[in-house]
Protein backbone atom coordinates (compact mmCIF):
# COMPACT_ATOMS: atom_id res chain seq x y z
CA UNK A 1 0.00 0.00 0.00
CA UNK A 2 1.23 3.41 -0.93
CA UNK A 3 1.84 5.06 2.43
CA UNK A 4 1.65 8.56 1.01
CA UNK A 5 -2.12 8.50 0.35
CA UNK A 6 -4.73 9.72 2.84
CA UNK A 7 -7.26 7.18 4.15
CA UNK A 8 -10.11 8.26 1.88
CA UNK A 9 -7.88 7.54 -1.11
CA UNK A 10 -7.57 3.89 -0.20
CA UNK A 11 -8.62 1.76 -3.20
CA UNK A 12 -11.43 0.28 -1.13
CA UNK A 13 -12.95 3.75 -0.91
CA UNK A 14 -12.02 5.57 -4.08
CA UNK A 15 -11.65 4.83 -7.78
CA UNK A 16 -8.92 7.41 -8.24
CA UNK A 17 -7.14 6.01 -5.19
CA UNK A 18 -6.99 2.66 -7.00
CA UNK A 19 -5.32 4.28 -9.98
CA UNK A 20 -2.88 6.25 -7.84
CA UNK A 21 -1.96 3.15 -5.85
CA UNK A 22 -1.17 1.24 -9.02
CA UNK A 23 0.83 4.18 -10.34
CA UNK A 24 2.80 4.25 -7.10
CA UNK A 25 3.39 0.51 -7.14
CA UNK A 26 4.65 0.33 -10.72
CA UNK A 27 6.60 3.58 -10.50
CA UNK A 28 8.52 2.12 -7.56
CA UNK A 29 9.39 -0.82 -9.80
CA UNK A 30 10.95 1.33 -12.45
CA UNK A 31 8.09 1.88 -14.85
CA UNK A 32 7.68 5.05 -16.83
CA UNK A 33 4.25 6.36 -15.81
CA UNK A 34 2.62 7.62 -18.98
CA UNK A 35 -0.67 9.40 -19.56
CA UNK A 36 -3.43 8.00 -21.78
CA UNK A 37 -2.91 8.13 -25.49
CA UNK A 38 -4.99 10.96 -26.95
CA UNK A 39 -6.88 8.90 -29.48
CA UNK A 40 -9.89 6.60 -29.47
CA UNK A 41 -8.72 3.00 -29.01
CA UNK A 42 -10.43 -0.30 -28.20
CA UNK A 43 -7.84 -1.38 -25.63
CA UNK A 44 -4.69 -0.24 -23.86
CA UNK A 45 -2.66 -2.47 -26.13
CA UNK A 46 -3.20 -0.03 -29.03
CA UNK A 47 -1.22 2.71 -27.26
CA UNK A 48 2.06 2.99 -29.17
CA UNK A 49 3.81 2.58 -25.80
CA UNK A 50 2.70 -1.04 -25.98
CA UNK A 51 2.17 -1.98 -29.63
CA UNK A 52 5.25 -0.35 -31.07
CA UNK A 53 7.49 -0.51 -28.01
CA UNK A 54 6.95 -4.27 -27.84
CA UNK A 55 8.91 -4.50 -31.09
CA UNK A 56 12.69 -4.47 -31.35
CA UNK A 57 15.30 -5.33 -28.74
CA UNK A 58 15.33 -2.27 -26.46
CA UNK A 59 14.21 -2.66 -22.85
CA UNK A 60 11.02 -0.77 -21.99
CA UNK A 61 8.92 -0.61 -18.83
CA UNK A 62 5.81 1.54 -18.72
CA UNK A 63 2.44 1.82 -17.00
CA UNK A 64 -0.55 3.98 -17.85
CA UNK A 65 -4.31 4.24 -17.77
CA UNK A 66 -5.98 3.99 -21.15
CA UNK A 67 -9.62 4.93 -21.76
CA UNK A 68 -10.95 2.17 -24.00
CA UNK A 69 -13.91 2.41 -26.33
CA UNK A 70 -16.03 -0.57 -27.29
CA UNK A 71 -18.99 0.90 -29.18
CA UNK A 72 -20.81 -2.46 -29.26
CA UNK A 73 -20.77 -2.79 -25.45
CA UNK A 74 -22.85 0.35 -24.84
CA UNK A 75 -26.05 -0.30 -22.84
CA UNK A 76 -27.44 3.25 -22.51
CA UNK A 77 -26.23 3.31 -18.92
CA UNK A 78 -28.73 0.63 -17.95
CA UNK A 79 -26.45 -2.35 -17.40
CA UNK A 80 -24.55 -2.40 -14.09
CA UNK A 81 -21.51 -4.14 -15.65
CA UNK A 82 -21.20 -3.03 -19.25
CA UNK A 83 -19.81 0.21 -20.62
CA UNK A 84 -18.88 1.45 -24.06
CA UNK A 85 -16.14 3.56 -22.47
CA UNK A 86 -14.05 2.26 -19.60
CA UNK A 87 -10.55 2.36 -18.20
CA UNK A 88 -7.82 -0.18 -18.56
CA UNK A 89 -4.68 -0.05 -16.48
CA UNK A 90 -1.86 -1.22 -18.67
CA UNK A 91 1.63 -2.36 -17.67
CA UNK A 92 4.28 -3.46 -20.12
CA UNK A 93 7.61 -4.89 -19.01
CA UNK A 94 10.12 -5.72 -21.70
CA UNK A 95 11.64 -8.18 -21.40
CA UNK A 96 9.34 -9.72 -18.83
CA UNK A 97 11.18 -10.12 -15.51
CA UNK A 98 11.36 -13.73 -14.24
CA UNK A 99 9.11 -12.87 -11.27
CA UNK A 100 6.35 -11.12 -13.20
CA UNK A 101 3.61 -13.25 -11.61
CA UNK A 102 4.86 -12.29 -8.14
CA UNK A 103 5.05 -8.61 -9.14
CA UNK A 104 1.48 -8.79 -10.38
CA UNK A 105 0.25 -10.47 -7.20
CA UNK A 106 2.14 -7.81 -5.24
CA UNK A 107 0.13 -5.13 -7.04
CA UNK A 108 -3.11 -6.82 -5.96
CA UNK A 109 -1.88 -6.87 -2.36
CA UNK A 110 -1.05 -3.19 -2.72
CA UNK A 111 -4.67 -2.41 -3.55
CA UNK A 112 -5.86 -4.45 -0.59
CA UNK A 113 -6.49 -7.93 -1.99
CA UNK A 114 -5.03 -10.42 0.48
CA UNK A 115 -4.07 -13.69 -1.23
CA UNK A 116 -4.85 -15.72 1.89
CA UNK A 117 -8.37 -14.32 2.12
CA UNK A 118 -9.21 -14.31 -1.58
CA UNK A 119 -8.89 -16.99 -4.20
CA UNK A 120 -6.41 -15.81 -6.82
CA UNK A 121 -5.99 -17.94 -9.88
CA UNK A 122 -4.30 -17.97 -13.30
CA UNK A 123 -6.71 -19.51 -15.79
CA UNK A 124 -5.63 -20.22 -19.36
CA UNK A 125 -6.57 -17.49 -21.79
CA UNK A 126 -4.48 -16.95 -24.85
CA UNK A 127 -4.72 -13.47 -26.19
CA UNK A 128 -5.05 -12.56 -29.82
CA UNK A 129 -5.73 -9.31 -31.64
CA UNK A 130 -6.59 -10.05 -35.26
CA UNK A 131 -6.50 -6.36 -36.19
CA UNK A 132 -3.02 -5.86 -34.71
CA UNK A 133 -1.65 -9.14 -36.01
CA UNK A 134 -0.66 -9.90 -32.44
CA UNK A 135 -0.87 -12.88 -30.12
CA UNK A 136 0.53 -14.15 -26.88
CA UNK A 137 0.08 -16.82 -24.24
CA UNK A 138 -1.09 -16.15 -20.73
CA UNK A 139 -4.04 -16.17 -18.42
CA UNK A 140 -7.05 -14.34 -17.21
CA UNK A 141 -6.41 -13.63 -13.56
CA UNK A 142 -9.30 -14.50 -11.28
CA UNK A 143 -10.12 -13.07 -7.94
CA UNK A 144 -12.90 -15.11 -6.33
CA UNK A 145 -14.09 -16.23 -9.73
CA UNK A 146 -14.01 -12.78 -11.32
CA UNK A 147 -11.65 -11.96 -14.13
CA UNK A 148 -9.79 -8.87 -12.89
CA UNK A 149 -6.82 -8.82 -15.25
CA UNK A 150 -5.35 -10.20 -18.39
CA UNK A 151 -1.75 -11.45 -18.24
CA UNK A 152 0.04 -12.02 -21.54
CA UNK A 153 3.48 -12.90 -22.75
CA UNK A 154 3.56 -11.24 -26.18
CA UNK A 155 4.88 -13.58 -28.83
CA UNK A 156 4.04 -11.57 -31.91
CA UNK A 157 2.97 -7.99 -32.59
CA UNK A 158 2.17 -6.40 -35.97
CA UNK A 159 3.02 -9.78 -37.46
CA UNK A 160 6.61 -9.65 -36.11
CA UNK A 161 8.16 -11.99 -33.57
CA UNK A 162 8.70 -10.28 -30.19
CA UNK A 163 12.37 -10.57 -29.29
CA UNK A 164 12.62 -10.21 -26.41
CA UNK A 165 9.16 -11.14 -25.18
CA UNK A 166 7.23 -8.50 -23.22
CA UNK A 167 4.95 -9.20 -20.32
CA UNK A 168 1.69 -7.27 -20.55
CA UNK A 169 -0.73 -6.78 -17.67
CA UNK A 170 -4.15 -5.30 -18.28
CA UNK A 171 -6.34 -4.53 -15.28
CA UNK A 172 -10.03 -3.90 -15.81
CA UNK A 173 -10.15 -0.91 -13.46
CA UNK A 174 -13.93 -0.63 -13.02
CA UNK A 175 -14.31 -4.33 -12.24
CA UNK A 176 -11.43 -4.29 -9.85
CA UNK A 177 -12.75 -1.16 -8.16
CA UNK A 178 -16.25 -2.67 -7.87
CA UNK A 179 -14.63 -5.62 -6.21
CA UNK A 180 -12.52 -3.77 -3.69
CA UNK A 181 -15.27 -1.25 -2.97
CA UNK A 182 -17.86 -4.02 -2.72
CA UNK A 183 -20.47 -2.48 -5.04
CA UNK A 184 -22.64 -4.30 -7.58
CA UNK A 185 -23.27 -1.41 -9.93
CA UNK A 186 -20.44 0.37 -11.69
CA UNK A 187 -22.25 3.72 -11.46
CA UNK A 188 -22.25 3.42 -7.66
CA UNK A 189 -18.44 3.41 -7.46
CA UNK A 190 -17.08 6.15 -5.27
CA UNK A 191 -14.79 8.11 -7.55
CA UNK A 192 -13.07 10.58 -5.21
CA UNK A 193 -13.36 8.75 -1.89
CA UNK A 194 -15.24 11.53 -0.15
CA UNK A 195 -18.65 11.19 1.48
CA UNK A 196 -21.80 13.27 1.74
CA UNK A 197 -22.09 16.33 -0.47
CA UNK A 198 -18.50 16.01 -1.55
CA UNK A 199 -18.88 12.47 -2.80
CA UNK A 200 -18.50 12.03 -6.56
CA UNK A 201 -19.66 8.72 -8.01
CA UNK A 202 -18.69 7.03 -11.25
CA UNK A 203 -22.24 7.68 -12.42
CA UNK A 204 -21.85 11.41 -11.71
CA UNK A 205 -18.87 11.42 -14.02
CA UNK A 206 -19.92 9.01 -16.77
CA UNK A 207 -23.61 8.10 -16.78
CA UNK A 208 -24.69 10.84 -19.15
CA UNK A 209 -21.80 10.05 -21.46
CA UNK A 210 -22.80 6.37 -21.58
CA UNK A 211 -26.36 7.29 -22.51
CA UNK A 212 -25.33 9.75 -25.20
CA UNK A 213 -22.62 7.60 -26.72
CA UNK A 214 -24.88 4.52 -26.80
CA UNK A 215 -27.34 6.59 -28.81
CA UNK A 216 -24.54 7.76 -31.06
CA UNK A 217 -22.95 4.33 -31.50
CA UNK A 218 -26.12 2.42 -32.23
CA UNK A 219 -28.45 4.98 -33.76
CA UNK A 220 -26.92 8.27 -34.83
CA UNK A 221 -23.42 7.70 -36.15
CA UNK A 222 -23.63 8.58 -39.83
CA UNK A 223 -22.17 5.61 -41.60
CA UNK A 224 -21.47 7.19 -44.99
CA UNK A 225 -18.77 9.58 -43.70
CA UNK A 226 -17.44 6.81 -41.46
CA UNK A 227 -16.78 4.65 -44.48
CA UNK A 228 -14.94 7.62 -46.00
CA UNK A 229 -12.94 8.18 -42.80
CA UNK A 230 -11.80 4.59 -42.96
CA UNK A 231 -10.61 4.98 -46.53
CA UNK A 232 -8.92 8.28 -45.70
CA UNK A 233 -7.09 6.91 -42.68
CA UNK A 234 -5.95 3.90 -44.63
CA UNK A 235 -4.67 6.05 -47.47
CA UNK A 236 -2.94 8.52 -45.16
CA UNK A 237 -1.26 5.75 -43.17
CA UNK A 238 0.28 4.25 -46.29
CA UNK A 239 1.22 7.66 -47.69
CA UNK A 240 3.02 8.64 -44.48
CA UNK A 241 4.87 5.36 -44.38
CA UNK A 242 5.97 5.84 -47.97
CA UNK A 243 7.01 9.44 -47.30
CA UNK A 244 9.10 8.52 -44.27
CA UNK A 245 10.75 5.47 -45.81
CA UNK A 246 14.55 5.31 -45.42
CA UNK A 247 16.38 7.20 -48.15
CA UNK A 248 18.89 4.41 -48.55
CA UNK A 249 19.10 0.72 -47.74
CA UNK A 250 19.69 0.32 -43.99
CA UNK A 251 18.72 3.92 -43.22
CA UNK A 252 16.20 4.99 -40.60
CA UNK A 253 12.47 5.40 -41.14
CA UNK A 254 11.32 8.94 -40.34
CA UNK A 255 7.54 8.84 -40.07
CA UNK A 256 6.14 5.87 -38.17
CA UNK A 257 4.23 7.35 -35.23
CA UNK A 258 1.96 9.65 -37.29
CA UNK A 259 1.28 6.75 -39.64
CA UNK A 260 0.42 4.50 -36.72
CA UNK A 261 -2.12 7.09 -35.52
CA UNK A 262 -3.96 6.60 -38.78
CA UNK A 263 -3.90 2.85 -38.26
CA UNK A 264 -5.52 3.35 -34.83
CA UNK A 265 -8.08 5.65 -36.40
CA UNK A 266 -9.00 3.11 -39.06
CA UNK A 267 -9.41 0.46 -36.38
CA UNK A 268 -11.76 2.60 -34.30
CA UNK A 269 -13.85 3.60 -37.32
CA UNK A 270 -14.19 -0.06 -38.16
CA UNK A 271 -15.45 -0.75 -34.60
CA UNK A 272 -18.05 2.00 -34.98
CA UNK A 273 -19.25 0.65 -38.32
CA UNK A 274 -19.41 -2.81 -36.82
CA UNK A 275 -21.55 -1.55 -33.92
CA UNK A 276 -23.92 0.08 -36.42
CA UNK A 277 -24.40 -3.35 -37.98
CA UNK A 278 -23.55 -2.17 -41.49
CA UNK A 279 -20.67 -4.54 -42.10
CA UNK A 280 -21.65 -8.02 -43.30
CA UNK A 281 -19.98 -11.17 -42.08
CA UNK A 282 -17.80 -11.53 -45.16
CA UNK A 283 -16.88 -7.84 -45.33
CA UNK A 284 -15.92 -7.92 -41.68
CA UNK A 285 -13.00 -10.22 -42.35
CA UNK A 286 -11.73 -8.04 -45.15
CA UNK A 287 -11.81 -4.90 -42.95
CA UNK A 288 -9.88 -6.71 -40.24
CA UNK A 289 -7.28 -7.72 -42.79
CA UNK A 290 -6.97 -4.15 -44.04
CA UNK A 291 -6.26 -2.84 -40.53
CA UNK A 292 -3.86 -5.68 -39.87
CA UNK A 293 -2.01 -4.83 -43.02
CA UNK A 294 -1.57 -1.23 -41.81
CA UNK A 295 -0.36 -2.49 -38.43
CA UNK A 296 2.11 -4.79 -40.11
CA UNK A 297 3.51 -2.00 -42.22
CA UNK A 298 3.80 0.29 -39.18
CA UNK A 299 5.60 -2.43 -37.25
CA UNK A 300 7.95 -3.03 -40.15
CA UNK A 301 8.76 0.70 -40.31
CA UNK A 302 9.15 0.99 -36.53
CA UNK A 303 11.83 -1.70 -36.60
CA UNK A 304 13.75 0.66 -38.88
CA UNK A 305 13.83 3.43 -36.27
CA UNK A 306 16.10 4.27 -33.38
CA UNK A 307 13.51 3.20 -30.77
CA UNK A 308 12.83 0.08 -32.78
CA UNK A 309 16.45 -0.89 -32.27
CA UNK A 310 17.80 -0.21 -35.75
CA UNK A 311 20.76 1.76 -34.35
CA UNK A 312 21.39 -0.75 -31.58
CA UNK A 313 21.67 -3.60 -34.02
CA UNK A 314 24.11 -1.81 -36.26
CA UNK A 315 26.22 -0.80 -33.23
CA UNK A 316 26.47 -4.41 -32.07
Amino acid sequence: MNAGLPAHMHPSRSFQGLILTLHGYWAERGCVILQPYDMEVGAGTFHPATTLRALGPRPWNAAYVQPSRRPKDGRYGENPNRLQHYYQYQVILKPNPPNLQELYLGSLEAIGIDPLTHDLRFVEDDWESPTLGAWGLGWECWCDGMEVSQFTYFQQVCGFECAPVSGELTYGLERLAMYVQGVDNVYDLNFNGLEGAQRVSYGDVFLQAEQEYSRYNFELADTAPLFRHFEDAERECTALLDAGAPAAEGGLHRCVLPAYDQCIKASHVFNLLDARGVISVTERQSYILRVRNLARRCGEAYLQTEAGGAGARSAA
Binding site: P95, N96, L137, Q155, A163, P164, R313, A315, A316
Partner: peptide
Protein backbone atom coordinates in the same frame (compact mmCIF):
# COMPACT_ATOMS: atom_id res chain seq x y z
CA UNK B 1 0.10 -27.96 -28.29
CA UNK B 2 1.22 -24.31 -27.97
CA UNK B 3 4.47 -23.04 -26.56
CA UNK B 4 6.20 -19.73 -25.97
CA UNK B 5 9.49 -17.94 -25.24
CA UNK B 6 9.99 -15.51 -22.40
CA UNK B 7 12.34 -13.16 -20.62
CA UNK B 8 15.84 -12.02 -21.48
CA UNK B 9 16.66 -15.31 -23.14
CA UNK B 10 14.18 -14.49 -25.91
CA UNK B 11 16.15 -11.38 -26.93
CA UNK B 12 18.16 -11.69 -30.13
CA UNK B 13 21.79 -12.68 -29.77
CA UNK B 14 24.31 -9.91 -30.11
CA UNK B 15 22.13 -6.95 -29.11
CA UNK B 16 23.88 -4.74 -26.56
CA UNK B 17 21.24 -4.94 -23.81
CA UNK B 18 21.19 -8.45 -22.40
CA UNK B 19 24.71 -9.88 -22.71
CA UNK B 20 25.15 -13.62 -22.72
CA UNK B 21 21.62 -14.29 -21.51
CA UNK B 22 20.15 -13.44 -24.91
CA UNK B 23 19.74 -16.60 -26.93
CA UNK B 24 17.14 -15.51 -29.48
CA UNK B 25 15.60 -18.34 -31.44
Amino acid sequence: PKSMRWGRASAPKGTPFYGEEARGS
